[in-house]
Design a protein around this nucleic acid. Structure first.
Lengths: 202, 202
DNA sequence: GTCTATATAGGGATAGAC
DNA sequence: GTCTATCCCTATATAGAC
């Protein structure tokens, strides 16, 4: 029979733990999450879990890393290019994730927080990614050049984060409407009062 | 000598505790804050503190209440009308406060969270307040009516929250620039490419 | 690779003295 | 109004058996 690699089972369990931890961190926050609960979700005792991750902090950072990794892969697979709207859509599909990232981002503003480095590195990357997308749209003549790409990227990211925060508290909030609205304002050839072309949905 | 009211000293201490708690909740989050630490900051023992507040949850809700109250009063004193930009400015002056509200808002999305009710009530009020401000500007002909006031309010609030979140992580973020930018986009009489009037700074 | 048992620390909350 | 002392719970992390 097929001989399995030496770490076959361990790797599978590791991944299982990461997914369970993601869910629970999202639901309870970093401090609110107990490793026991994560362990139990994986039919493991606490020391069993700590065989894979040396500390709670270690677990968190690896969860965040995995999260960004899968998001990146999924995006590239689909379009070859990251789409700004995907950031929003993804959130809507997995509520807990939005909460995880918003609350983590806030908590991580403390330089002592285990996730500080992660978010400090992540934002500039996101900004540059969105700026690139915006620049391309401008080159194609589909977006006003009134606001420089870098500044517009900050604005769009802020809008995305903020609308997700509002949605967290009031689930009836329409997350796509404000995005549509701002793209309408940004469309070229508008005159400030009349009909504007429906912006494309991506 | 002047006879003090029966609760003179108690009220002063109460207020002192609320201010200390605000700071510490902001720095450490709800779960991360220990009542002992709050007590120590006020030169009090834990039971000393619990003489004033029956539980940690009680303390949190009263902190949030006080916070909104003072913000409201300050606004009304200054202009008689709430200004959208004040929301941002206020945040910039007291960093911990931004973190408190963003992280609390995220954590409070859980209906079980002690602050859930507070935020659930707060957002609609803010939205209506901003919508009123927007409506007035539209009536004066200083703002495009392309987007209805209620929808624009959602967008502006999201932008404010989001930019504060970005600023939490990267303190070099300019919190006023995106606000200026969006108001420029919203100004009437623009043509989508040329010079736009500098939006007023209030 | 996973367990039981335990060390160590800290949390919220209460009883009862002063 | 404030204290000391204490209860009981839960947390992370480790030691050492299987």
């Amino acid at each position: 029979m097929a001989k399995r690699g030496p770490y076959e089972k361990g790797e599978a369990k590791r991944t299982e733990i990461l997914h369970a931890a993601l869910e629970i961190f999202a639901a309870e926050g970093y401090r609110g999450t107990s490793l026991r609960k994560v362990a139990a979700r994986c039919n493991l005792s606490l020391p069993g879990l700590m065989h894979y991750f040396s500390s709670k902090e270690d677990l968190l950072t690896q969860v965040l890393r995995m999260r960004d990794e899968t998001a990146r892969v999924r995006q590239t697979e689909r379009t070859g290019e990251p789409s700004y709207r995907d950031i929003i859509r993804e959130g809507a599909q997995t509520p807990g994730l939005v909460e995880l990232f918003v609350s983590m981002a806030a908590a991580a503003s403390d330089p002592e927080h285990p996730a500080h480095a992660h978010f400090a590195e992540r934002y500039p990357v996101l900004r540059e990614r969105v700026a690139g997308y915006v620049r391309q749209r401008m080159d194609e003549g589909r977006l006003t050049t009134e606001i420089p790409p870098e500044r517009l990227a900050v604005l769009l990211l802020a809008l995305a984060d903020g609308i997700q925060l509002q949605w967290l508290i009031d689930r009836s909030t329409d997350m796509e409407q404000p995005i549509d609205d701002v793209f309408r304002l940004l469309a070229v050839g508008r005159d400030g009062g009349g009909e504007a072309p429906e912006p494309e949905r991506e």
